[in-house]
Design a protein around this nucleic acid. Structure first.
Lengths: 293, 293
DNA sequence: CATGGTGCCTGACTATGGTCAGCTATCTGT
DNA sequence: ACAGATAGCTGACCATAGTCAGGCACCATG
């Protein structure tokens, strides 16, 4: 039978072959895979250097093995290690100029690979969306939530996606400048906060907490990337933003939303929020919620 | 910047981790990966046995290495090898009953993995579609065209998809029983043929050639899976079916189509077909083409 | 029936990844 | 100051994968 499982197998085979090919291209620079992986792990962290423990966790390497690989890289003149300034037991590894060159060479191998794949496809955007969906499905446990500035690039990316989704879903369209606080100024420390959900370097969702120093906060701009919907990320983000609110000594949260976003309305109803009368003059919302912390 | 390349990288990382996890689960049965892979390669070919050369090509193994792995499997009582009946130099490997048990255990590990992935996702159909799209993009060079019976399961799968796509795209819907030759009887040897495009066990497209023993043939039921569109597969299928027509001593091909399928009309116009007057009473088509071979 | 080619096997060897015990230096808490 | 924990290093060891030359049996040709 042409089961779903056959389709997954085909995917696995295609991807395994592809990953193998990528590994082979990594071997093209005359270095064993393990060494190349360590070089890349160190290179990813920029010039600040990276703690060895971090590298070990990231690559799942044994301490002894990493140590030996580092010696190899040091002998090649690609990596320097130095004691950690705050903790003499730890060491930091960083790339030398030569190491940065090698790192860049690996990067461009892998980028070229990606560009070739995209360039050869008739619908690159669908391909990327498909990749996002699969990466989210496979990596759902590795999504991390962290604080950010709403003016950061990743935040702006999420907000732009959010606004354009609102524009698509609201009958009357959406213009952020008509909404209160369009530049998110009050979603920063010390009064508020802004959270991003990250998955392997790609932001998958955001939520803002607007405060004025008092005990009442307002949740704004909650958005989840389409590829990550249904994985429980909205609940996690809401939980995280409630914790942040408590940490800012708030005891009441409010939010507004629109019935054109039924999944959001349902989420609020199912997680302890209750409807209250309109509390602002924003033209878009038609539902208003409050929650006691 | 949040480039497309960052998204591909994230996909690569997610998938590499996943493939690693799959490999780990393969190691769960106390056998090294290479041995497990050979066991699976032999098991896939059913009870007939598989030529060692085939296994070597499939797994990209060195002859010596395969030989040793086979000895391991024989010692474990999982595999039997015997000389090839037609060529004493070759050998055939097949699973013993115990080997089939182990093979089934590996299969169910991998199926369980797949089922868990699908079951844990809110939109399994989107996930499968995304996998198809990616597998087609990665494996575009490995698509093979072969002859089939239109009553085979894979053919029926393609035809069903084809009919339901027509039903979606035609304003008036589509009912195959209103069309001439609904059961594809004349698309089989010796007068006609039916071709399938295969990618790693999944049929991605089909085309029928209807003949009556004369020099005029008719192309019917050309369909390409959505995930494989734009990769040039339609051109390949048309080329293959034209060769098949020549082999059946045909010198003229005809076909009908509908302006609701503009990509098909464009393909015919761009590959040597010219429009002719209606040549049947089929209720659906509104364009008719002919090509001299 | 000789010749060269093919498929498979064996033995010898290497590289890579990975494990583990034990060591030193350093930090943390009391 | 001291005990115990922690981070990293080293040496010794092992398993797996992979390479290569040479050999044997068999096949296809003339």
């Amino acid at each position: 039978m042409l089961t779903d499982i056959a389709r997954i197998r085909r995917f696995n085979r295609a991807v395994t072959t592809e990953v193998g090919a990528l590994d082979d291209s990594f071997l093209g620079r005359g270095r064993p895979l393990g060494v190349a992986r360590v070089l890349n792990a160190i290179g990813q962290s920029g010039s600040a250097g990276r703690e060895l423990g971090e590298v070990r966790d990231f690559l799942q390497l044994d301490s002894g093995l990493l140590s030996r690989i580092l010696r190899t890289l040091e002998e090649e003149g690609l990596v320097l290690t130095a004691p950690h300034p705050d903790d003499g037991r730890k060491r930091l590894a960083r790339l030398t100029a030569k190491g940065q060159g090698e790192f860049a060479a690996y990067e461009s191998l892998s980028d070229g690979h990606a560009a070739r794949l995209l360039g050869g496809h008739p619908r690159p955007q669908s391909l990327l969306d498909a990749m996002d969906l699969i990466a989210s499905a496979l990596g759902r446990n590795r999504i991390e939530i962290s604080q950010a500035d709403p003016r950061d690039e990743a935040s702006l990316y999420c907000l732009t996606e959010y606004y354009s989704e609102l524009a698509r879903r609201f009958d009357q369209g959406f213009d952020v400048t008509l909404s209160a606080d369009p530049d998110a100024a009050s979603m920063r420390a010390p009064c508020g906060t802004f959270l991003l959900a990250w998955s392997d370097g790609l932001p998958l969702g955001c939520v803002g907490l607007k405060g004025n120093g008092g005990t009442v906060g307002e949740i704004k701009r909650m958005w989840i990337a389409p590829s990550a919907r249904g994985l429980g990320l909205a609940k996690r983000l809401m939980g995280a933003v409630e914790s942040a609110a408590r940490a800012l000594s708030m005891n009441t949260l409010r939010l507004d939303t629109n019935s054109a976003l039924p999944e959001a309305v349902a989420l609020y109803r199912n997680s302890g929020w209750h409807e209250i009368p309109r509390f602002n003059n924003d033209p878009y919302p038609d539902h208003f919620f409050e929650k006691a912390l």
